[in-house]
Simulated assay, not measured.
Amino acid sequence: MRSMESVGGPTRGMGMGDSQRSQWLLSRPACADMYSAMQEVTSSENTTSGQHAESSQFRMRSDDEDMRSLLNFLLSRDPFGCDETLRGIG
């Protein structure tokens, strides 16, 4: 689906009509089958690493500290308090 994620995508700019879009969409399963077959023939596999940067102990601890810092900030400055005066935020 990477071709759909480009800036503008296939439906912007010079245009892609409904029939072209339907043909492209309906061809995706066949393209996926060919891609899998080529991986099998070439004995290659598209894999990702087992570790994501978001799940490391350091990252989780850092996120937890950030969340606690934000929570403490909001608790000391309650944005939903009983003050009924109208104030601008800009």
Results as ranks from 00 to 15, higher is better:
56 S>Y: 12
83 D>S: 05
82 C>A: 14
77 R>P: 00
54 E>R: 11
79 P>K: 08
80 F>W: 10
33 D>L: 10
33 D>S: 08
78 D>C: 09
62 S>L: 13
79 P>L: 07
77 R>W: 04
44 S>H: 06
79 P>Y: 07
60 M>I: 13
72 N>G: 12
38 M>G: 02
37 A>W: 03
46 N>M: 14
46 N>Q: 15
74 L>F: 08
75 L>G: 00
68 R>F: 00
79 P>T: 06
49 S>F: 05
41 V>A: 11
81 G>P: 02
43 S>L: 13
82 C>D: 13
65 E>M: 11
48 T>E: 14
41 V>W: 10
42 T>E: 08
43 S>I: 05
57 Q>L: 11
51 Q>I: 10
65 E>P: 02
44 S>Y: 01
63 D>K: 00
34 M>P: 02
35 Y>L: 11
61 R>F: 09
49 S>Y: 07
59 R>C: 06
41 V>Q: 12
41 V>L: 14
46 N>P: 01
63 D>C: 02
66 D>V: 03
51 Q>V: 15
72 N>F: 11
34 M>G: 10
77 R>I: 03
82 C>H: 11
60 M>P: 03
68 R>A: 05
31 C>R: 12
72 N>I: 01
38 M>E: 10
48 T>M: 15
78 D>Y: 03
46 N>C: 12
32 A>P: 01
70 L>H: 04
34 M>A: 15
55 S>F: 13
42 T>Q: 06
48 T>I: 12
31 C>N: 02
56 S>R: 13
48 T>Y: 15
67 M>V: 02
45 E>Y: 12
37 A>P: 00
65 E>D: 06
47 T>Q: 06
81 G>E: 05
48 T>G: 14
81 G>H: 15
65 E>V: 08
60 M>T: 07
56 S>V: 07
38 M>V: 04
83 D>A: 07
36 S>M: 03
70 L>Y: 05
79 P>C: 07
49 S>L: 05
83 D>I: 04
70 L>N: 03
59 R>H: 07
63 D>W: 02
53 A>E: 14
37 A>T: 02
58 F>Y: 05
40 E>M: 09
58 F>D: 11
31 C>K: 06
34 M>L: 15
47 T>W: 08
64 D>P: 01
40 E>S: 07
66 D>E: 08
39 Q>K: 05
45 E>L: 13
59 R>G: 02
40 E>W: 07
31 C>L: 14
73 F>W: 03
70 L>C: 02
